[in-house]
């Protein structure tokens, strides 16, 4: 028996590829609740080292 693939299954397959989504997208915490989840104090202590995400100046970022 074969089951007709839903739109979602196709989308899910596509989601595995890179480049999905618009070229410029405003990051909207209102829609994506994960932006502001409450971190437990013990987890705050375990935050990853942010050195890989240090804000750069535009000059540095543009190289």
């Amino acid at each position: 028996m074969t089951r007709k693939k839903t739109d979602l299954e196709q989308l899910m397959a596509a989601a595995g590829t890179t480049g999905e989504g618009p070229a410029v997208e405003v990051v909207q915490p209102e829609v994506r609740t994960g932006a502001q989840y409450a971190l437990l104090p013990s987890m705050k202590a375990k935050r990853p080292d942010p050195s890989g995400a240090t804000p750069e100046s535009e000059a540095e970022g543009g190289q």
Binding site: V27, P29, E30, V31, R32, T33, G34, A35, Q36, Y37, R47, P48, P50, A53, P55
Partner: peptide, 25 residues
Amino acid sequence: AEDAAGSFGDTTVWFRAARDPMARE
């Protein structure tokens, strides 16, 4: 989780930072 949210991690660099208490859905 932070990557998924488009958060930069600890962005206390600026006044606004990531800790907007009204930003979550």
